[in-house]
Simulated assay, not measured.
Amino acid sequence: MAQTKNNLKPQDIVILLKIIALGSKTWFHHTVAQELGISQSEVSQSLNRSKYAGLLDDTRKNVNKLAFTEFLLHGVAYAFPQQPGAIVRGVLTAHAAEPLNQIIKSNEKYVWPYARGLERGQAIEPLYSTVVEATLRDKELYELLTLVDAVRVGRIREKEIAKKELEKRILNA
């Protein structure tokens, strides 16, 4: 029974990507919580789960980039799968968003549902409900999350391009 509280949750991926997006900037639990629209206690619990999974170091401040990249490239699509849904208004994601839309040309659009979104496309449920608002304020986080979505929902070509870009961005951050 105690095992389940250590299982990763989708928001753990969002928080780890936020830490990577912050780069060398100093951060605190409350600032990450505020920027992501997640409670401070949830951020703390998330960091504990990520440490338990080997995705954070013992200080809970530094992402284990090799392990995290491996998880994103080979596990995220299975742990947090997603299928495109109905046509809705929202914010572009996956191959329809930057940076992949510069490489992949497609008429097919995927969006995170968002009432004030400017695009229409097939709905992709974001990893966490506050992702859309958080990414409107953080371009780096937005691009990392759209790459992860491409891995979660893309076809083989889209997935491979997204994986290469994720690997480059995370390991060189």
Rank of each mutant, 00 (worst) to 15 (best):
2 A>F: 02
3 Q>A: 06
5 K>I: 14
5 K>E: 12
11 Q>S: 11
11 Q>I: 10
12 D>E: 03
12 D>R: 04
15 I>H: 02
15 I>C: 09
18 K>H: 11
20 I>G: 07
20 I>A: 07
21 A>H: 05
23 G>V: 05
23 G>A: 10
23 G>K: 15
23 G>S: 08
24 S>F: 07
26 T>F: 12
27 W>H: 15
30 H>S: 15
32 V>H: 07
32 V>K: 10
32 V>C: 04
33 A>D: 01
33 A>K: 04
35 E>I: 07
38 I>D: 01
38 I>R: 02
39 S>M: 03
41 S>R: 10
42 E>S: 15
42 E>A: 15
44 S>G: 05
44 S>F: 06
45 Q>Y: 13
46 S>P: 05
47 L>M: 07
47 L>R: 12
49 R>P: 02
50 S>K: 01
59 T>C: 00
67 A>L: 08
68 F>M: 02
70 E>H: 11
70 E>I: 01
71 F>K: 06
71 F>C: 02
73 L>E: 13
73 L>G: 01
75 G>T: 02
77 A>Q: 08
79 A>H: 09
80 F>N: 04
83 Q>Y: 12
84 P>R: 08
86 A>N: 14
87 I>K: 14
90 G>Y: 03
90 G>F: 04
92 L>C: 00
92 L>A: 11
93 T>K: 01
96 A>G: 14
96 A>K: 03
96 A>T: 04
97 A>W: 03
98 E>H: 09
99 P>L: 06
100 L>T: 08
101 N>I: 06
102 Q>H: 05
104 I>M: 03
105 K>D: 06
112 W>Q: 01
114 Y>C: 04
115 A>Q: 13
115 A>W: 09
121 G>M: 12
125 E>H: 13
126 P>I: 11
126 P>G: 10
127 L>G: 08
128 Y>N: 14
129 S>R: 14
133 E>T: 15
133 E>M: 10
134 A>H: 12
134 A>G: 09
137 R>T: 10
139 K>P: 00
140 E>C: 08
142 Y>A: 15
144 L>F: 14
144 L>P: 02
147 L>W: 06
147 L>Q: 05
148 V>T: 12
149 D>V: 08
149 D>A: 08
153 V>Q: 08
153 V>R: 08
153 V>Y: 04
154 G>N: 09
155 R>I: 13
158 E>P: 06
159 K>Y: 00
159 K>A: 05
159 K>V: 13
160 E>F: 00
161 I>R: 06
164 K>C: 00
164 K>A: 12
167 E>R: 12
167 E>A: 11
173 A>N: 15
